[in-house]
Simulated assay, not measured.
Amino acid sequence: MPLTIRPVLSKRDRKTFVDLPFRLYRDDPNWVPPLKGEAQGLITPEKNGWFSHAKAQLFLAEEDGRVVGRISAHIDTLALTLPAEQGFGPGIGQWGLMEAEREDVFRALLDRAEGWLRDEGMVRALGPISMSIWEEPGLLVDGYDHPPTVMMGHAKPEYRGWIEAAGYEPAKQLFTYELDITQEFPPIVKRIIQSGERNPRIRVREVDKSRFEEEAAIILDILNDAWADNWGFVPLTPPEIKDVGVKLKPIVFNDLIRIAEVDGRPVAFMITLPDLNEAIRPLGGSLLPFGWLKLLRWLRAPKVRTMRVPLMGVRKDLQSSRMASQLAFMMIEYIRRASVEHYGASRGEIGWILEDNQGMRSIAETIESRVNKAYTIYRKAL
């Protein structure tokens, strides 16, 4: 039977869409099966606040009665309002969640996604972005030999060639950095931290989870200021903030999230999360029959190998100052100590970091971390 591409229209279709990677990656030791309930929530408008300012169409590829591929095409109306130099802007649509057994299947899916974007008035496509820039942006192009950490993606090595053969060129690269956090930082970093500790204007404090919403508002205020000019930045909306709070609150621990204050003003933050992937990987995508109990026990007192730093930010009026890096080093060091002493961690991962974010890349390199994974977001005129 010929290959057919059809839209996802029902709850059953969404389940099929989510199930496909479990077959395609079943022999890949570095793929982390997502919890199926979370994966279905991502593509269900009623369960994902991102859809309050975005729309999407999912597609399935079928052949001989089997599903052999999938893709999403989507438009973020907030991204359309941003300056073009920041990556999005008018006429920019996106695609993501791409999986396919073969290149011809991928090309057929991509053609259908591009057609949908053109029909919606888009003139350029970015991808893969699955589905918000805050979720899993970019295609893994280096670092296939070890599993991703929480909120990072994995992909088959052949996908890169398929995308580039379809006429796409790199728009931006994203990097993650890893380091051995059982080792103390170089002497120059220690001196910078000690200097900050002697400065009475500086206070680096833990967050208070009992005041979760208040602390989250402080971090969000810094984030929106610090990241406003970054490539790909799309402000989080209230529905998304609510969703993020629900998802992340169980893995928020006071000593792993720091807020830096200067003269009593919150000016910087650093969020660190225990690598939830270490806990969910053995569950095979399901919390039943006893996976929920195992996960609950882990959340009460997590012991992990890896800690991930998904977000850091310093207010724009400090970003070109020496104090910016000083605050960053102080937060990194305090969280490093807590990670080792309280959670048994031995490895840290920082990122993602934009390829042209020289400030953050310099900080990562100064603490002797190295790039362990690279992701590429591609673009193409439609």
Score class of each variant (00 low, 15 high):
R265Y: 07
S339H: 01
E240W: 01
S346C: 05
H146C: 08
N357Q: 00
K242C: 10
G41W: 05
R191T: 08
P2F: 05
L287D: 09
G91M: 08
D225Y: 07
V207M: 04
Q358E: 15
A100G: 11
V189S: 00
L311A: 14
P128V: 03
R198Q: 09
N372G: 12
E103F: 12
E214S: 05
I129E: 08
D19S: 05
G138Y: 07
D208N: 11
D64F: 00
D225C: 07
G121K: 13
Q94D: 00
M331R: 01
T81N: 13
I367T: 04
K303W: 00
Y159I: 00
L276C: 07
E46D: 14
R337Q: 10
N30K: 05
R66L: 15
P45I: 10
R315P: 06
Y168W: 10
A39I: 14
G196M: 01
L327F: 07
D76I: 04
W162A: 06
R14L: 10
P274V: 07
G284T: 00
R70C: 01
F185L: 04
Q183V: 03
V309H: 09
L82Q: 15
P250C: 01
G351M: 05
L139R: 04
P157D: 12
F329V: 06
N277P: 04
Q326C: 12
L318I: 07
R258H: 14
N230W: 11
P2H: 08
P7F: 15
N199Y: 04
I133M: 14
D19A: 08
T16Q: 15
V8R: 12
V309M: 15
E368I: 00
W95Y: 14
K15M: 13
L220Y: 01
I193P: 13
Y177L: 10
L82M: 15
P238H: 09
K11C: 12
P83A: 05
L80A: 12
S132E: 07
G153E: 02
E197Q: 15
I92L: 04
L9S: 15
V262E: 06
A39Y: 02
A381F: 12
L287Q: 04
A381Q: 13
S52K: 08
D229L: 11
D64T: 08
R66D: 13
L296Y: 09
W298R: 08
E114N: 13
P310T: 02
E158Y: 15
Q326M: 03
D119C: 15
V246S: 09
I367Q: 00
G121P: 09
H342R: 11
P187M: 05
V189T: 03
D28H: 01
L283D: 04
E215S: 03
G284A: 07
K303H: 02
A217H: 05
A100Q: 10
I377H: 06
Q183E: 05
G285R: 03
A79F: 12
M330L: 13
Q57F: 14
E85H: 09
R198A: 12
